[in-house]
Amino acid sequence: MLPYGRQTIEDDDIAAVAEALRADFLTTGPRVEAFERAFAERVGAAHAIACANGTAALHLAMLALRLGPGDRVVAPSITFLATANCARYVGAEVVFADVDPDTGLMTPATLREALARADGPVKAVLPVHLRGDACELPALAAVAREAGAVLVEDAPHALGTTTHFGGATETIGDVRHSAMATFSFHPVKTIATGEGGMVTTNDPALASRLRTLRSHGMLRPEGAEPWWYEMPEPGFNYRLPDILCALGLSQLRKLDRFATRRRALSAAYREALAPLAPVARPAAQPAWSDPVLHLMTVLIDFERAGRSRLDVVEALRARGVGSQVHYIPVHRQPYYRERYGELSLPGAEAWYGRCLSLPLYPGMQDGDVRTVAEALGAALGI
């Protein structure tokens, strides 16, 4: 069975974890800082703060901005639940933005429309680099700035992705256009630590606050007794153990190889899927984005094919091909429908109605792409 995503764990990864297990620190030790330094250097940010998972990274970002009841956060409806939930964790309200129906990304136009619908001040905007393709960051930052909001990139899909704005090559995570960017190291992501997350920032004050909040909000005042600590405000136990940071360091050293392989597989998919157009085609890639795709998403005209999505998913599974849907629009979830009522977001609905994610991970063989494309063609009757 070819799953839609899978980690690549090799002997040197196992050896790195074994070495950490034999060391003095299983958590809050030197491998945490080493992973943070290496990650910050890799993406070009001044600071990187490791934490328990990608959801914790988003929650910490909201806490670091001191958001709370009465504040509002704009998030796209096409994303994982955590992007919206992080605002609710701190008592802020969510304003759902629509997305481009062919990329799944928040755009300057959909952000402006969401801001116009907000019934109060918006303090933060959370664009999601869906699948690994990058949002139009300079334009989004300008719209957010006009509204007095802070931009926080939700980037768990986009490690390794680069962009080209105004002739300059930038790296997702370098936070040139935002206050912070958040990442996830869940097994299906570009690098894996099992569970794990990271926040990058160029603001030393935000970095200090993030580090404090991930460890119960504890501070150790300079000159105090060695056992003394103080808690000006509650934080959380969102630390990432040395064991997992050891795996992260080992995986990070392979990022270029993983990125090259994902790009090669994505290119092979585009060629192999071309005969299925116009019934099925890969999601559109913005001109400024050079992605390391986390998800190989195809957009399928199920009505034209005369098959339901469930029919296609089951036919693929019968041929040994796994698939997934990314994502059910978050504004449809019962909690948010009860809180905010029915919303009309046609771009999100159009994306959801057509999307299906196919297998994509570095361990795939070249022939696997042809197998998947042929299985999809057969499932669609093409």
Score class of each variant (00 low, 15 high):
381 G>K: 10
350 A>W: 06
255 L>E: 00
27 T>S: 14
218 M>G: 05
64 A>W: 00
20 A>N: 13
311 D>A: 13
131 R>K: 09
33 E>Q: 12
93 E>T: 08
380 L>R: 04
336 Y>E: 06
182 T>I: 02
174 D>I: 01
18 A>W: 04
207 A>H: 07
32 V>G: 07
138 P>N: 12
215 S>V: 07
326 H>C: 14
110 T>L: 14
61 A>S: 15
19 E>A: 15
291 P>D: 10
335 Y>W: 12
118 A>F: 07
134 A>L: 10
50 A>N: 02
53 N>H: 14
27 T>Y: 08
359 P>G: 05
253 R>M: 03
361 Y>D: 03
310 L>S: 14
343 L>K: 13
293 L>E: 12
259 A>C: 08
354 R>G: 06
329 P>F: 07
338 E>P: 01
238 Y>N: 01
297 T>F: 02
282 P>I: 07
29 G>Y: 11
321 V>L: 09
245 C>Q: 04
351 W>N: 02
345 L>V: 00
130 L>W: 13
47 H>K: 05
300 I>T: 05
222 E>K: 13
328 I>L: 08
314 E>T: 12
326 H>F: 15
116 A>T: 06
311 D>Q: 04
197 G>K: 01
338 E>L: 14
301 D>W: 09
314 E>D: 04
37 R>C: 05
349 E>F: 09
369 V>R: 00
253 R>Y: 07
217 G>C: 11
264 A>Y: 00
262 R>W: 04
300 I>A: 11
349 E>R: 11
139 A>H: 09
155 A>R: 00
373 A>C: 03
209 R>T: 10
270 R>A: 11
265 L>F: 04
